[in-house]
Simulated scan of single mutants.
Amino acid sequence: MTALADRRRLRAFVDEKARAAGFDKIAVTTPDAAPQAPERLRHFIEEGRHGSMAWMAETAERRARPQNLWPQVRSIIMLGMNYGPDENPLALLERKDRAIISVYARNRDYHDVVKGRLKQLAGQLAARAGEDVKVFVDTAPVMEKPLAAAAGLGWQGKHTNLVSRELGSWLFLGSIFTTAELEPDLPEEDHCGSCRACLDVCPTDAFPAPYQLDARRCISYLTIEHKGPIPHEFREPMGNRIYGCDDCLAVCPWNKFARDAAEIRLKARDDLKEPALETLLDLDDTAFRELFSGSPIKRIGRDRFVRNVLIAAGNSGRAALVPRCRRLTSDPSPLVRGAAVWALSRLLDAEEFGRLAKIGQTIEMDEDVRQEWRHALGRTA
C-alpha cells in the first residue's frame, strides 16, 4: 500500500511540474505498450515509403522497442505541447504572391523549446525520485506517436499524426524515459470514425490507405527531407507551400478544441506568417542564415529552400517574378538553376521561353539542369 501511495504521490508531482514547465498534456505508459509498432515500422520501410530518409532504416532496430534504446527504462512519460495557430493556415493557399511555411516552423526550433522544458522536468523527477532519466524529442529513434497513443495522450489519426480531444492535431511531442515506476494511463480510443477530411485534402495523395503514409509523396518530406529536384508530378500540387504542409492537420475537426486552448505555446513570427515570394527569392546564403537563425528551416540550407520558393513562384502566375527567376538561372547551385528553369517555363509564353532556353542550354554545364531545359521546352512546345 505504501509503494502504491508513493507512486501516486510521484505521479502527482510529475503532473504538477509538467504543467508548470509549459506542457498541455501528460500521460504515462510502459516500454512494451505499443507491440504493433515494430511491424508497422517494418512494413513502412520495406515498402520504401521512408524515401531517402536512410536513418529510419538504419535505426529501425533501436526504434522498434524502447528497451532496445535503453534497457533500464521502466516507465515512459509522454508530453504534449499545443502549437495550434490563431488562424486557419489554409487561407493562405489563395494568396499566390505569398509563401506558406508550416505552422510549427514559424518561430524557434521546437526541438530546442521542447527539449529545454523536458530537461527541466526530468531533472526535477530525478531529484525527487532518485531515479535515472533520459529525454527525447523527435530526432531520437523513438516512436513517439505510438507511445503517446498507448499512454492515452491521444490517438493516431488517419493522417498518422496524433490527435487529441483537447488540442486536435496541433501537438509537439516529447518523452522522458525513466527507471522510476509510475502508474500507466489507459490508451485513448480512436475517435476518427468515418471522417476522411485529412485523407481527401492531401494535394499529392500521400495516403495509400487510412492510417498509412507514403512519405515520398508528402509535401513535408519533399520540401524538407528530399535533397534533389522536386519530382515533376508534385510541383504544381505544391502550390505555394515552401516548407512543410499543414493541410491534413488543419482540416481535422478536433482542432476546434485546440483553438479554445488557454495558451498557444509558440507564437508565429510576424515575418514568417505570410512572407512575400519576392523577398525569399532574393536570399543568398548569408541572408538565409540570418533570417532563419534559430529556426528549424535553417537546417535544410539556402539552396533547397530557394528551390521550394521557385516552385511556388512558378505556380504563382506572376510575371513580376520573372526577373528574379531569370537571375537565378545563373545561381551557383544546380538545384536552384533547375528550379528556376521550371518556374520560367510557367511564367513566360512559349516563344519567349524558347528564346531563353536556346541560350540557357548552350551555357549550362550541369546535365540535370540541361534536362530541365529540355523537359520544359517539350512542355511549352
Rank of each mutant, 00 (worst) to 15 (best):
M1Y: 12
A3S: 15
K17W: 11
A18C: 07
R19S: 10
P38H: 10
H43F: 01
F44N: 02
M56T: 06
M56H: 05
A57D: 08
A64C: 05
W70G: 01
V73A: 06
M78H: 06
M81H: 06
M81K: 07
N88G: 01
N88F: 05
L93I: 00
R95S: 11
I101F: 06
A105G: 07
N107T: 14
D109I: 08
Y110E: 03
Y110I: 10
H111E: 05
Q120E: 15
A122Q: 09
A122M: 12
D132P: 00
V135N: 02
V142E: 03
E144C: 01
A150H: 00
A150I: 00
A150G: 09
L153N: 00
H159N: 15
H159Q: 10
N161G: 14
L167S: 08
S169K: 08
L173E: 01
L173P: 12
G174W: 02
T179N: 02
G193R: 13
S194A: 14
L199Y: 11
A215V: 08
R217F: 10
C218H: 10
G228M: 06
P229D: 13
R235W: 08
R241Y: 12
I242F: 09
W254L: 12
I264L: 08
K267G: 02
L272Y: 09
K273C: 11
E274H: 15
A276D: 15
L280F: 05
D284Q: 07
F292V: 07
F292E: 04
S293H: 12
G294W: 14
I297H: 03
I300S: 03
L310H: 06
A312D: 04
R318T: 06
A319Y: 10
R326H: 05
R326L: 14
L328E: 06
S330H: 14
P332V: 03
P332T: 06
P334M: 06
V336D: 05
R337D: 09
A340C: 01
V341A: 07
W342M: 09
A343I: 15
L347Y: 12
D349P: 14
A350Q: 12
E352S: 13
A357F: 03
Q361P: 00
T362C: 02
E364N: 07
E364W: 06
D368V: 11
D368L: 07
R370S: 02
E372A: 09
W373D: 02
A376N: 03
L377C: 10
G378H: 12
R379Y: 00
